[in-house]
Design a binder for these strands. Structure first.
Lengths: 142, 142
DNA sequence: GTAACTGCAAAATATTTGCATCCTT
DNA sequence: AAGGATGCAAATATTTTGCAGTTAC
């Protein structure tokens, strides 16, 4: 995993600092998206809240992570899987919010649909958030 | 329009107060969704901020309005067109956020698609937010 | 050594809660 | 009259900004 972290930082021309490493580590070890607050908690509050804000902002700009709006107003962040770059996201997968465990995950294998919009509307990006019960919570046992 | 306002309030067993009337009036006269802040401004700040919060919350619960999460984290609110009722939204249309004018509108005529999710995921609601350039901003003239 | 990053303090915003008063029915 | 709605004050929570000290390269 360390390799992966270094790679991400180098590829994005970001200096290798503890905060960034810790936050990337958290993303890589956490399955699913996290809100700012989750991240802060997940770090054991060792990193200043402000640094977290700034780091997330930077990661967003660089295309390392993407943000997922959810209906309760919390913004979730998740790692971009591949070939996103500065100002150029390829973020065309569906997101799933589980009503039971609260987790938000990227369904990388489900692409956002092409929609037939009324005349005059020019779509640039389609964001799909599905809510329901996720695979894990849907298990009959355990 | 007054009739419509009265009707909404009566149908939802809400007492007929100035704040509620004003906020409904604003929704009815405004084409598109509004964030909390827009609503406060739109009311000319005649109604207490707290009342706006509480009213929106109540309208949401009653199914008079629905909320639209957008990627910048602002929650937008829009009138439900029909047959939504308490805890029972029929809110299966697509939302469009214009990058030029910033407006968010409901595309009532475009239904949310049915998606093929991975095994185990049980969808309950599908939220689609399209961003791009809206009909109005796409006009070659004017 | 220099530019970039961090943490702290504090400002600015946004949201929630308690309570006394007022309004609707 | 009774219950609910409102406004105000204040408590909380969230996000942004400025700046001085520190770190990466």
């Amino acid at each position: 995993m360390d390799n992966e972290i270094q790679e991400i930082l180098i590829n994005n021309k970001l200096s290798n600092t503890e905060g960034r490493r810790k936050i990337l580590e958290l993303f890589l070890s956490h399955n699913g998206a996290m809100a700012h607050n989750d991240i802060e908690k997940g770090l054991g509050e060792k990193i200043d809240r402000v640094t977290v804000y700034r780091t997330l902002q930077k990661f967003l700009n660089k295309g390392i992570i993407h943000s997922i709006p959810t209906s309760d107003g919390s913004i979730q962040y998740a790692l971009c899987k591949n070939d996103c770059s500065e100002g150029h996201h390829h973020d065309d997968h569906v997101h799933f919010v589980c009503r039971q465990c609260g987790n938000t995950v990227c369904l990388d294998e489900v692409n956002t649909p092409t929609l037939d919009l009324p005349k005059g509307f020019k779509p640039r990006q389609v964001e799909v958030i599905v809510s329901g019960v996720c695979k894990d919570c849907n298990q009959p046992r355990g």
